[in-house]
């Protein structure tokens, strides 16, 4: 029966010229947008620009990662922040208590999130639709409550970083720039991974699962395996940048690390830009943070920014469910080559 053996699911990520038009054009466009964002603070030379761009890059990375599960595979993870929080905590513990370097701590953060996703994935990815969404909320809340009681991680007080640590990275202000560029590099990497997943055979299997999981299995897609790997891939970057974020922050506590609202904001960004596209989460994150920044600083909306954001979200969900990129692709099919 050797002829029946099936090739292992896409180890090599190949692009699909026939299927996607000219995909590298789409990737280049997306990466160019991000590079311009990274260079922007250099142009203005202001710390405030750097902080704004940092927030956007963080969002882009989280949104692009989530998109692998939400947009490509069709599983709504409401508690995705659990990977950001757990990775952040593990890395922060290694940095602050065990004296590891930032790089090793980031690696450990990413790996621990990936491991959690792998273990969870085998179990909860059997659930479909709203049941899966609820389970992810439950896991995030359970994790937060657990960390709240976990003494080595400082319980409800969390942990703080000794200021001396920044000296290894050229002092506090130098470290902020280094963190910024590291964030930029990770964003480029996360988006590239998202692109190669989207255009690979593995990605095609995910899309098939999204459209009709049972039919996909009948065609030979090993859904339990593919879904688990999609979940793992979507957890790695949140884990890594969790470490980076809390390193920059100088302290970590359960509430900000596992904030459910943060998860849902990420979903909104993916939706806003267009789920299932590579460029969508990038555009969505930029738009969302832009709108949020405007509302927070505007005299009229400052106090009710959350309500206005809610109203906008409702309008998008009701009238533009495909998001900006999805809408453009639908409206102008010739743009599909560049807007991926």
């Amino acid at each position: 029966m050797s002829e029946n053996k099936v090739a292992a699911p896409a180890k090599k990520l190949r692009f699909m010229p026939q299927l996607a038009g000219r995909p590298y054009l789409g990737l280049s466009l997306t990466l160019a947008v991000i590079v311009i964002m990274i260079l922007w603070p250099l142009v203005t030379g202001k710390d405030i620009t750097r902080e704004t761009v940092f927030t956007i890059l963080l969002s882009v990375t989280l949104a692009s990662s989530l998109n692998i599960l939400l947009g490509y595979t069709g599983y709504v993870s409401f508690g995705h922040v659990v990977f950001f929080g757990l990775g952040g905590y593990v890395g922060f513990y290694l940095l602050a208590i065990q004296g590891w370097s930032l790089w090793m701590a980031m690696l450990a953060g990413g790996l621990s999130s990936a491991l959690l996703a792998y273990l969870l994935g085998r179990a909860i990815l059997r659930l479909r639709g709203a049941y899966f969404a609820l389970a992810t909320i439950g896991i995030n809340e359970a994790m937060r409550a657990f960390i709240n009681n976990f003494k080595p991680f400082g319980g409800p007080i969390g942990m703080t970083l000794n200021f001396q640590v920044y000296r290894d990275y050229g002092g506090a202000s130098q470290a902020l720039w280094m963190v910024f560029y590291t964030m930029g590099a990770l964003t480029l990497l996360a988006v590239t991974v998202s692109f190669f997943v989207r255009t690979s055979k593995f990605g095609l299997g995910l899309l098939a699962i999204r459209e009709d999981e049972d039919a996909a299995e009948v065609m030979g897609v090993v859904a339990p395996k593919a879904k688990t790997w999609a979940y793992v891939l979507s957890a790695i970057f949140p884990g890594i940048i969790g470490v980076l974020f809390f390193f920059k922050n100088g302290s970590i506590e359960p509430a900000p690390a596992f904030r459910l609202h943060f998860s849902i904001e990420t979903i909104v960004m993916v939706m806003l830009g267009g789920q299932g596209t590579v460029l969508g989460p990038v555009v969505g994150s930029g738009l969302y943070q832009g709108i949020r920044g405007y509302l927070l600083t505007s005299a009229i909306f400052k106090n009710i920014q959350l309500a206005v954001a809610g109203g906008l979200l409702l309008l998008i969900v009701l009238f533009v469910p495909d998001g900006v990129i999805g809408w453009l692709r639908h409206r102008f099919p010739f743009l599909r080559r560049v807007l991926q």
Binding site: F15, M16, L19, L204, G205, E211, A215, V221
Partner: peptide
């Protein structure tokens, strides 16, 4: 019928070739 609605006709058929008996690569599958 259970078409994968949001994928193109060719992508639908490519899924069959990629994940079926032979497990072809994307290029061969398309």
């Amino acid at each position: 019928v259970r078409p994968l609605n949001e994928l193109t006709v060719r992508e639908n058929v490519t899924v069959g070739a990629c994940f079926g008996r032979e497990g072809h690569t994307l290029g061969k599958a398309s």
